[in-house]
Design a protein around this nucleic acid. Structure first.
Length: 235
DNA sequence: GCGACAG
DNA sequence: ATCTTGTCGC
């Protein structure tokens, strides 16, 4: 476990955050197909919060993309540094995520994060922001459609429908399990929307959410519990 | 103008 | 995200 430090130049308020998004947005790369599906490494990242104790914990879990076995993992804990503001989620989550990724020995290869990339009011969600800061290929998987519209995809696993901002396709609703609510996939950086959906399907052989997300979620919650217990015992 | 809105 | 019991099912 490592300690989270605030990245240099990190904005302190909403106005600063909006300015950062406006500047970094131009650096997003969306014309690379992304790594081939089923080979190399895929890393899930997630963050958990304890606002009561002012604690935040992040986890990064690296999987072998072919077998979906865990090959490496790391966690980071620290203080909450930014409030949750719709459209500015990256500023709340990324310091913790970057610290966890830095602590990895292996990978990370392709990164899968909770939330959106291009499906964002200013086309610069968490996944795109993380990609620009690290240079890594990143995609986003969200559990909710945010403020975007979509038609219900077909009932079978693999069915998709466009996630729309007006008439622009900013992501896709992707059915990962027969008859189960879809997930909402968007490209982040250095991967196309098609490639992102193919990766998400490969990562969901059994559950609605990607194996990367499930592992990272479980690990950051555990790291948060342990940090809270340590704080409680005065260490 | 007001509320909704990824996590 | 998080607050929260039991319950149905593999």
């Amino acid at each position: 476990m490592t300690i989270i430090d605030t990245p240099a130049g990190w904005p302190a308020d909403e106005a600063g955050a909006l300015a950062v998004q406006d500047e970094l947005r131009a650096r997003v790369v969306l014309d690379e197909p992304g790594p081939p599906v089923g080979t190399g490494l895929v890393t899930g990242v997630d963050v958990a919060y304890d606002d009561e104790r002012d604690l935040v914990a992040a986890a990064a879990v690296v999987l072998d993309a072919r077998t979906l076995d865990v090959v490496d993992e790391a966690t980071a804990v620290g203080r909450v540094s930014f409030p949750y503001v719709p459209g500015l989620l990256a500023f709340r989550e990324l310091p913790a995520v970057l610290a966890a990724l830095d602590a990895l020995t292996a990978g990370p290869g392709l990164v899968v994060c909770d939330g959106y990339g291009q499906a964002h009011p200013r086309r610069f969600g968490l996944a795109s922001h993380l990609g620009v800061l690290t240079g890594l290929p990143v995609l986003g998987v969200a559990k909710n459609p945010f403020a975007f519209t979509y038609e219900q995809p077909g009932p079978r696993r693999g069915a998709t429908s466009p996630l729309l901002a007006g008439t622009e396709e900013v992501g896709r609703a992707l059915r990962t399990r027969d008859g189960v609510k879809p997930v909402f996939v968007s490209a982040g950086h250095r991967v196309t929307l098609e490639g992102a959906c193919a990766h998400v399907l490969a990562l969901t052989p059994r559950y609605r959410l990607p194996e990367t997300t499930r592992h990272a979620d479980a690990l950051c919650r555990r790291a948060l519990r342990e940090a809270a217990a340590r704080q409680g015992s005065g260490v």
